[in-house]
């Protein structure tokens, strides 16, 4: 447990360059934070490659009339309907499906699929679109130039471009978002780093549907890994071989 205040020992100004060199390392390489911990002040970086965070959506349990996951995400991250459906951001959306051959109807949420090989990361010219060591795909809004190539590349339409200025009151301190950059589901990375589950998962569980499971795909003992081992599931656009971290059952 760390003590934020009083602050750690005063860092003499001469260490500034040292700190800046560290920034360069963090920006350029995505190696685990071994070298960074020396002055970053932390025992270990949260995003480590031993974990792979993922979701399992059970379409069989998802209620077509329920959109608790969507409202929870919107509330948590501060995006919402502004009356412009074509330009409003949607980090997560409910999609209603009707199977053409059988007429079977189902409903499920679609969000960023947090691919192992994300096309959005490949195409991003500045490297703003990136994949954390633990599999969470994020946009670094500090260097996003708003070219929208990632939106062209995403097979799931998971990303939104922020077309309008976001009022300060709408912003969440844990989920920065601003005009002219691209955004998408962060898997509630601020919650994950604090050992909690994403807002959509929590909200779904609160309704009693329990249609979304969150956990570590790398841990064979995790609830999600056990469920995946037990029941058939699939990834969206499996043909592309992107290995998404979000899986669907009952499709």
């Amino acid at each position: 447990m760390k003590q934020p205040t009083p602050r750690p020992d005063a860092v003499p100004p001469s260490r500034r360059d040292f700190l800046r060199a560290g920034a360069a390392v963090a920006t350029i390489t995505l190696a685990p934070g071994v070298t960074l911990t020396a002055f970053g002040g932390s025992a270990e970086a949260e995003a480590d490659a031993n974990h792979r965070w993922g979701l399992l959506v059970d379409a069989g349990k998802c209620d077509p009339d329920c959109s608790a996951c969507v409202s929870a995400c919107s509330q948590e991250n501060g995006w919402h309907d502004t009356g412009h459906p074509e330009t409003d951001a949607q980090w997560i959306r409910k999609v209603d499906l009707t199977e053409i051959a059988t007429g079977r109807e189902l409903s499920l949420p679609v969000m960023c699929q947090h691919c192992e090989s994300p096309p959005c990361v490949d195409v991003c010219p500045t490297g703003a679109s990136f994949r954390r060591a633990d599999g969470i795909v994020l946009v670094d809004k500090h260097i996003c130039i708003g070219c929208r190539y990632c939106m062209m590349a995403c097979p799931f339409k998971a990303r939104s471009f922020i077309h309008e200025t976001v009022p300060d009151a709408d912003k969440r301190s844990f989920a920065p978002r601003g005009r002219g950059t691209v955004e998408s589901c962060t898997l509630c990375v601020h919650r994950v780093d604090a050992g909690r589950v994403p807002a959509c998962v929590e909200a779904c569980a609160a309704t009693g549907h329990n249609a979304i499971l969150f956990g570590d795909l790398n841990d064979p003992e995790s609830e999600i890994s056990k469920a995946l081992a037990q029941y058939p599931s699939m990834a969206l656009r499996d043909d592309l071989g992107l290995d998404p971290g979000v899986r669907y059952a009952g499709l």
Binding site: R93, K94, L97, T98, A101, P155, K157, L236
Partner: peptide, 10 residues
């Protein structure tokens, strides 16, 4: 995104 299905959403 869902081959074999008719889809709709907001």
């Amino acid at each position: 995104i869902f081959p074999g299905f008719v889809t709709s959403s907001s």
